[in-house]
Simulated scan of single mutants.
Amino acid sequence: MKRRNFITSASLGIAGFSLGNATSLGNKSFNSKEKHRFNLNYAPHLGMFKNLAGADPIDQLNFMADQGFTAFEDNEMRNRPIQLQKKMAKVMEKNNMTMGVFVAHSIYWKEPNLASGNKKWRAEFLSEIKTSVEVAKRVNAKWMTVVPGHVDLHLNKSYQTAHVIETLRQASAILEPHGLVMVLEPLNFRGHPGMFLAESPHAYEICKAVNSPSCKILFDIYHQQIQEGNLIPNIEACWNEIAYFQIGDNPGRNEPTSGEINYKNVFKFIHSKGFRGVLGMEHGNSKQGKDGEEAVINAYKITDNFVS
């Protein structure tokens, strides 16, 4: 099941996992620049720099670290071969990179799995959470993405919310002993119509009701710009339940500076609040090829250039 359209099948390739190819990158002049120091922990994903770094996931991780990125996220990590997971974890550890989110379970885009209260779907979800605990340990991850699925058109929203809360309480009981955190991601109505969780206040309400350090919010800035706007005040209102951010400009869902969001001010605010977690670069590149990949790196240098 695909998590995002911009994650292409090519980016999921696993050919050539060798650890020794970090010096064989395609664009050495770009790679030879002094490592940049970002204020925040931005996390690229595989495929974002495939033209500059090559197709090998290990080379891509090393390239990200060479550019100054201190984190990495991989929605598809749960589905990758265990041997590759271990190799990627080793490279992240070597480069002092923090592992960001991976998707913890099968997402139901058209069916109300968690909102329905159906015991079979609940059991399936909890089983996948248990499996994801092992993945998290293998790759040194702390956070995993949870999307509660589609609305149940046959039930009042309050009943649906109660069902989701009960399921997440049971999932939290699985995660808490391991110090792991599922982060709930509201998704916008335009790109994902009919999803149960769409707005940050609803996610806040659910996290407060679950009342666990293992159930927090993934605030995706791209989704919430479309869904509700008012970004900084909504981040402020949800702050004590937010554990993770994701990034994408609107329109287009590409790198900062390609759309309408004032990311310099958003990043400055997040930094001023003392956030030291991960901000996942869950977006595409606005331009193709090496030039487009360099543009992504430069966009983060521009928007991260603030005085807190």
Rank of each mutant, 00 (worst) to 15 (best):
M1E: 14
M1D: 11
R3I: 14
S9I: 09
S9Y: 03
F17C: 06
L19V: 08
N21Y: 07
A22N: 13
A22F: 15
S24A: 12
K28A: 12
E34I: 10
E34W: 01
E34V: 10
R37Q: 15
P44N: 08
H45F: 00
K50R: 14
A53Q: 08
G54F: 01
D56V: 04
P57S: 03
Q60C: 04
Q60L: 07
L61I: 15
N62P: 06
N62M: 08
M64R: 00
M64A: 11
A65M: 01
G68A: 10
F72D: 03
E73H: 14
E76K: 11
R78M: 02
R78K: 12
N79P: 04
R80S: 05
P81S: 07
V91C: 03
M92A: 04
M97F: 02
M97I: 02
T98A: 10
G100H: 09
V103L: 13
Y108A: 12
W109T: 09
K110E: 15
N113M: 12
N113A: 13
L114P: 07
R122F: 00
S132K: 08
V135T: 14
V135K: 02
V146R: 03
V147N: 08
V147D: 01
D152V: 01
L153Y: 07
L155G: 03
Q160D: 05
H163I: 01
I165L: 08
R169E: 03
A171T: 14
A173N: 15
A173H: 11
I174D: 04
G179C: 10
M182Q: 13
E185Q: 10
F189D: 12
G194T: 02
M195H: 10
A198D: 07
E199H: 05
E199F: 00
S200G: 06
H202A: 06
E205W: 03
C207W: 15
A209C: 00
S214V: 03
I217T: 03
F219L: 13
D220N: 11
Y222Q: 06
I235A: 02
N240T: 12
G248D: 08
D249A: 03
N250Y: 12
G252I: 00
E255L: 04
P256L: 01
G259S: 07
E260A: 00
K264F: 04
K287M: 08
K287A: 04
D291L: 09
E293Y: 07
E293D: 11
D304C: 13
F306K: 09
V307T: 15
